[in-house]
């Protein structure tokens, strides 16, 4: 295995590891831009993952599984939407409850699927384009869902900043009272945004159980739903930064796997650092648990550092985020 092949492998792995966060993050971004804080992402991902997996086992078709994962996420988000938009429950508490519910429900449903093997989604090489050296394997030799995630990023960016519907969405998230007074249906717009966010969270979960590790394991999202939520905030609600954050997370996940696999070579490499830094790094590398925290830690730190401009934050943060809307008040 030569060096350039390793590098390409790492980059492809990065994209694969980051894709669930792209889905979940962009979905939550739309919901939050409409002023809704849905902390149920982790729960919706898990239910999407188990539903997608079960449908794939039952039908043998992973594409049907992916669609089912979206549907399951949407249904979960509808529970959240109905409670928060019509019964005006607190968004934070409802979202937390949704996650706890999703964890339990997915574990229950998935009980009989533990250890069941499936044929996950296979890469679809795009003719000609995939033959281009480096760029080909990097961008044009993936499973279908990765292409979907690229398209999703483009569509979400275009929708938010170039379309009237996107303008209305941002307006509702900024001031629901003003939007209502002008004559927009705040509840309807928020419900649509919530359902979109749910569908994308479901798909993110489906990607994990159908592509990333084609199997079902309890709690297999391992906190990625929470990282997606953090991504949106630290990315100051900008799609491009969500994408950067997602791949950063993916990249460090993959790198830490490679570091673990490399063993002695890494131990020797650490000796170039002066004491005690080299020793500390070794402690981290030799502990798989500490190493597993790195993607989470690094993503948050990097995004926090690049998004410190207070004016930009104020301009992009949806001012009505998490606030309940009482029409006619």
């Amino acid at each position: 295995m030569d060096g350039s092949e390793t590098a390409i492998n790492i980059m492809v792995g990065t994209i694969r590891a980051g894709t669930p966060l792209v889905f979940a993050g962009l979905g939550e971004l739309i919901a939050e831009k409409a002023g809704v804080l849905n902390l149920g992402v982790e729960g919706m991902m898990l239910v999407g993952a188990v539903t997608g997996f079960a449908v794939t086992v039952l039908t043998g078709n992973p594409y049907l599984g992916a669609v089912a994962a979206i549907g399951a996420g949407m249904l979960m988000s509808l529970i959240f939407g109905g409670l928060t938009q019509f019964l005006l429950t607190n968004q934070v508490a409802t979202g937390l409850a949704l996650t706890i519910f999703g964890v339990g429900l997915s574990a229950f449903v998935g009980l009989s699927y533990i250890g069941t093997p499936i044929q996950g989604l296979q890469p679809v090489a795009i003719p000609l384009l995939s033959q281009i050296p480096i760029v080909g394997p990097l961008l044009f030799n993936h499973d279908l869902l990765i292409y979907v995630s690229f398209a999703l990023f483009a569509v979400v960016s275009w929708f938010m900043f170039k379309t009237r519907a996107g303008l209305i969405l941002r307006a509702v998230g900024e001031s629901h009272d003003a939007a209502h007074a002008i004559g927009y249906s705040v509840v309807k717009i928020r419900l649509l945004a919530i359902v979109f966010g749910g569908g994308m969270a479901g798909l993110a979960g489906g990607y994990l159980s159908l592509v990333y590790t084609p199997q079902w394991a309890e709690n297999m999202t391992a906190g990625r739903g929470w990282i997606a939520l953090a991504l949106v905030v630290f990315a100051t609600w900008r799609p491009a930064r969500v994408l950067i954050g997602a791949y950063l997370f993916g990249g460090i996940t993959i790198l830490s796997l490679h570091v673990q696999a490399a063993g002695d070579a890494v131990t020797n490499a650490m000796s170039v650092f002066p004491e005690p830094i080299g020793r500390w790094l070794l402690v981290i590398i030799n502990s798989s648990h500490l190493l597993a925290t790195l993607p989470y830690l690094a993503t948050v730190v990097v995004l926090a550092l690049i998004s410190r401009d207070a004016t930009k934050i104020r301009l992009n943060a949806p001012a009505s985020l998490g606030r309940p809307f009482h029409p006619g008040a």
Binding site: L167, R170, S175, A178, A179, A181, I182
Partner: peptide, 23 residues
């Protein structure tokens, strides 16, 4: 209105656009 129905993080043109129903 006495209390303005404006969106602070949007531009003037976008704010005005939001008050128009036609395409």
């Amino acid at each position: 209105f006495q209390h303005f129905n404006l969106f602070e993080t949007l531009t003037v043109a976008e704010n005005i656009s939001l008050g128009i129903d036609e395409d």
